[in-house]
């Protein structure tokens, strides 16, 4: 019962989506639309589960006064403020997602700077990691290095500035970068995409047919 019903649900929902693709007529397309709406709601609950878990873990740290519990207080308080303002539309009449609301004020002055700075920080780590890892020890590494070099330089104004004096346009860095992106890169990306597709198709079939059951966990 604990395993059979979930396997049945997976099989039914998966098969409905496959049939609806080949027969986009009632009742299959209607069931597909219905399932899509349900999917959005249940997936949203999955995110809520993650957030609740975050609160439980950090609440427990505060309760036990574990090491660094003060940081857990910051997580809980900042969550409550942001979620409270956004959910209960504090300070906004229509939607809190409109410009000029307190929610968007926090978004632009807290959430956005933090997100972009955290990702900008990676620029330094990528630079230091590549300095250590990028040694052209063999042909493959040299190819990777060369492609990265041309793409990086070919996409900025200084790249074209450096090679603009060359009369042959196909030797300009931006032209080389565009060619790398359009042909050798595209060829490999297509091979990867086809490989991924075949992997996903086989995994999906295994899930729908009940061969792959690891998502059900133990017991």
């Amino acid at each position: 019962m604990r395993r059979e019903i979930p396997l049945f649900i997976t099989a039914i929902t998966g098969v409905v989506f496959i049939i609806a693709y080949f027969i986009p007529h009632p009742p299959f397309n209607q069931i597909q639309d219905l399932f899509q709406t349900w999917f959005q709601i249940i997936a949203a609950f999955a995110i809520i589960l993650g957030v609740l878990n975050l609160m439980v873990v950090n609440g427990d740290k505060v309760y036990r006064r574990s090491k660094g519990w003060g940081y857990s207080v910051i997580i809980i308080l900042s969550f409550l403020v942001m979620a409270g303002i956004g959910t209960f539309k504090l300070g906004s009449k229509a939607s809190p997602l409109e410009e000029g609301t307190p929610f968007m004020y926090l978004f632009y002055n807290v959430y956005y700077p933090l997100t972009s700075t955290v990702f900008a920080l990676l620029a330094f780590f990528v630079a230091s990691a590549s300095f250590r890892a990028f040694r052209a020890r063999n042909k493959e590494a040299a190819l990777l290095l060369t492609a990265a070099f041309f793409v990086m330089l070919g996409r900025v104004p200084i790249g074209d500035y450096l090679t603009s004096w060359i009369p042959l346009k196909w030797l300009h860095l931006s032209t080389i970068a565009n060619w790398i992106m359009a042909y050798p890169n595209m060829a490999a990306q297509r091979a990867i995409m086809i490989g991924i597709a075949l992997g996903i198709i086989s995994t999906s079939l295994r899930l729908i047919l009940g061969i792959e059951r690891s998502y059900l966990g133990g017991d």
Binding site: F79, M82, G86, Y111
Partner: peptide, 15 residues
């Protein structure tokens, strides 16, 4: 930690 809390709050409101 502020980033984590605000992100969670943002997504709850958005959802």
């Amino acid at each position: 930690h502020l980033f984590i809390g605000v992100s969670a709050g943002y997504w709850v409101s958005y959802l």
